[in-house]
């Protein structure tokens, strides 16, 4: 059923759809990223498509291949019980793609995770910040050129005046005006 949807998509967006595949039952369309929002909106809103559920957003890094990244959207239709996969190609030099956070609520966090792990920027995203890692983290760890054994520099304490260890030492040394009791 969803193979027909991909065919239809290919006819409708003749220029944007670069490739299609149905290997292992995964009906997939590889698209140009400039048409992403149009394609997803069509799949979501067309009454013959009704792909109202975004299962997952992720990215695959094919190192040493051009274009290097593919951002993957797994869409599911609750009423029709079919699935399509939309993959948008993203170049290494310009890791930017449109955000679809207003089309699906869950895309917000999904895109934040892709930014966190792969460094793909989503234009139009309301608060594109790291989600699993901390803001001071350097690099994007799921990129293939990020070494598994790489370590991160030691961070400066964001608020040195609240150094818990020092507070505890002061407390132990019996200084009355120390730590959180100071005020």
């Amino acid at each position: 059923m969803s193979a027909a949807d991909i065919k239809k998509l290919g006819r409708k967006f003749r220029k944007a759809v670069l490739d299609t595949s149905d290997r292992l039952g995964m009906d997939t369309a590889l698209i140009d990223k400039s048409a992403l929002r149009e394609v997803i909106t069509y799949l979501r809103d067309d009454e013959k498509m009704q792909y109202n559920f975004l299962r997952d957003v992720t990215c695959v890094d094919y190192l040493h291949r051009q274009p290097r990244f593919e951002v993957v959207y797994v869409l599911y239709s609750m009423p029709r019980k079919t699935q399509v996969v939309i993959k948008a190609v993203v170049e290494e030099d310009e890791p930017v793609i449109d955000s679809i956070h207003d089309l699906y609520g869950c895309a917000n966090w999904g895109e934040r995770e892709v930014w966190d792990m792969y460094g793909i920027q989503f234009t139009g995203h309301p608060e594109l910040r790291r989600i699993l890692l901390y803001e001071e983290f350097e690099g994007h760890p799921l990129r293939k050129d990020y070494e598994k054994t790489a370590s991160q520099p030691r961070m400066e304490l964001l608020a040195p005046e609240r150094d818990a260890l020092q507070e505890f030492k002061d407390y132990q040394s019996g200084r009355e005006d120390s730590g959180s009791r100071a005020n």
Partner: peptide, 30 residues
């Protein structure tokens, strides 16, 4: 090849998106 496989986990649909490059180790697991 690549696959998005889903089962019903304790909290709901648990999906694994796996990309294989034909070796003994996965290229990507999400």
């Amino acid at each position: 090849g690549e696959i998005y496989s889903y089962t019903e986990g304790g909290n709901g649909e648990l999906g694994y998106y796996i990309v294989s490059n034909g070796t003994g180790k996965p290229w990507k697991v999400k």
